[in-house]
Design a protein around this nucleic acid. Structure first.
Length: 433
RNA sequence: GUGGGAGUAGUUCAGUUGGUAGAGCCCUUGACUGUGGAUCAAGUGGUCGCCGGUUCGAGUCCGGUCUCCCACCCCA
């Protein structure tokens, strides 16, 4: 391909087939989220740099964002994530009835090397509950997530939702004698546990954490809330207790795919409580498909009263790849017209246009031929487009205000006055739009 | 930023020890000038990523460069 016409690396460019799949997935997601009462919103793609500097995490902003100076001399970025924008919008609309359940499908940008499931321009589904610090809110967003996966046909066991809590981690780290200023760093070290070779990780961890490294490792391996070691170090009546309650709520919501995993930490700095990820349990997409958590201090930094929040981002591309590896097909709109309108010669074009409009007025889709070539070509086109019927407007049809209808699935064909043809099509195809 | 792989027709790819380029799919046309799918036949289409070197001769060998893919870092 001519280099001049290639899209930039990692930019989102969806041909109709891929778009139909993506929209089919989005339709399932919307349906599930709507059933929980979520409302859709949107925000700016370009944001001031400061919006993300405050809380997103320095690497995401400093090294992975599309940053530039606009014509007015402002430092701006193409949003690398949606949550800070959401927090600002909530802070700016204090009359919003709380708790608010808001969802969005933002296109976001991160400047990193493209690879499987990771590109520079990507679309996410974001789903957040604001204004509630109830555990029920944390459980509900995970129930939405699980409902989406089930709605898309992902079988039990094909994915797992892992959750932990930063508050629990803080309790344990405190009992291990780590100052709270060290907690953020310890979380980053925990986050890397599964990504480095064991030896390398240990060396690195003990360099940063000293004697506590071994205990931190022990903590990150906890995968049960009933772990005795964990119970001894967590604050009595504290976060561990809440996590047990949380697990109970998830069970009540019918979420079977979620489990505790102290090794989940997440990279964003603004998370304050529960954090979670959705992972493909198969081998081919060893990467988070979704990540989220609770952020109780984010809205407050934009002024006004503090508003707690919890939510997640779900990558549409990574979700599509996941469904593909499972062999799941999500049907979007088919793009198949009900009727293909063939035109014999230019003289019949007005009649063809009029008849096509009449068919459309009955709620059916009509793909009108724009060429008046050979009928064999037009029938071929109708077949290729997957039309259910082909209508022919020829001289005889035009003179008597009729059309010839052929059933493309192999039925016969007949010439009918337009009104009769409309009735016929309506009974055969009615309600397809 | 680090490491590996690959660049040949619109697309997916083949191309032998160096001898001026091939297939499938797609597209166009044709097998009853008012009838599609399947089959068949023919045809269009390539600066072999780019630059340089070796050679009588380079898609092929060597060097450089660019791009893409995969993996790492990080993350959706």
């Amino acid at each position: 391909m001519n280099p001049a016409v290639k899209p930039l690396a990692g930019m989102r460019q969806l041909y109709p087939d891929a778009m139909a799949v993506e929209e089919g997935i989005a339709a399932v997601i919307r349906r599930v989220a709507l059933s929980y009462g979520f409302e859709e919103y949107d925000g700016p793609v370009i944001e001031p740099l400061e919006l993300f500097l405050a809380k997103s995490g320095s690497e995401l902003v400093m090294e992975q964002s599309y940053r530039f100076t606009d014509r007015g001399g402002r430092e701006v970025v193409l949003r690398p994530e949606m949550t800070p924008t959401l927090a600002r919008m909530i802070a700016g609309a204090p009359d919003t009835p709380m708790p608010a359940r808001w969802m969005s499908f933002p296109v976001c940008f991160r400047y990193e090397r493209p690879q499987r499931g990771r590109v520079r321009e990507f679309r996410q589904f974001n789903c957040d509950i604001l204004g509630s610090d109830s555990l029920a809110a944390d459980a509900e967003v995970i129930a939405v997530l699980d409902g989406i996966m089930r709605g898309l046909g992902a079988p039990p066991g094909s994915y797992s939702i892992r959750y932990s809590s930063r508050r629990l981690a803080s309790e344990v780290l405190t009992s291990l004698g780590l100052e709270s200023v060290m907690h953020q760093q310890a979380l980053a070290i925990i986050d890397r546990k599964s990504k480095l070779p064991a030896d390398e990780w240990r060396a690195w961890a003990s360099e940063r954490l000293g004697g506590a490294a071994e205990a931190v490792e022990r903590f990150s391996c906890c995968s049960s809330l009933d772990d005795g070691w964990l119970a001894e170090r967590a604050a009595p009546g504290g976060e561990l207790e809440r996590l047990r309650e949380f697990g109970g709520l998830l069970g009540a919501a019918g979420v079977a795919s979620a489990s505790f995993d102290a090794g989940i930490a997440r990279g964003l700095d603004y998370y304050t409580g529960i954090v979670f990820e959705l992972l493909d349990t198969g081998g081919q997409n060893r990467r988070a498909i979704c990540g989220g958590g609770r952020y109780d201090n984010l809205v407050g930094i934009f002024g006004g009263k503090p508003v707690p929040g919890v939510g997640f981002g779900l990558g549409m591309l990574t979700l599509r790849l996941f469904l593909e590896t499972l062999g799941l097909r999500v049907s979007g709109r088919s793009g198949r017209p009900d009727v293909f309108m063939a035109v014999f010669s230019p003289a019949e074009l007005p009649w063809a246009v009029e008849a096509a409009e009449a068919i459309r007025s009955r709620g059916l889709s009509v793909l009108a031929s724009l060429e008046c070539g050979k009928l064999s070509k037009q029938f071929r086109e109708a077949s290729r487009r997957g039309a259910s019927f082909t209508a022919v407007a020829g001289p005889e049809e035009a003179s008597e205000r009729s059309i010839t209808l052929k059933d493309m699935s192999g039925g016969g064909q007949m010439r009918l006055p337009l009104e009769k043809a409309l009735e016929f099509l309506e009974t055969r195809l009615g309600g397809s739009l």
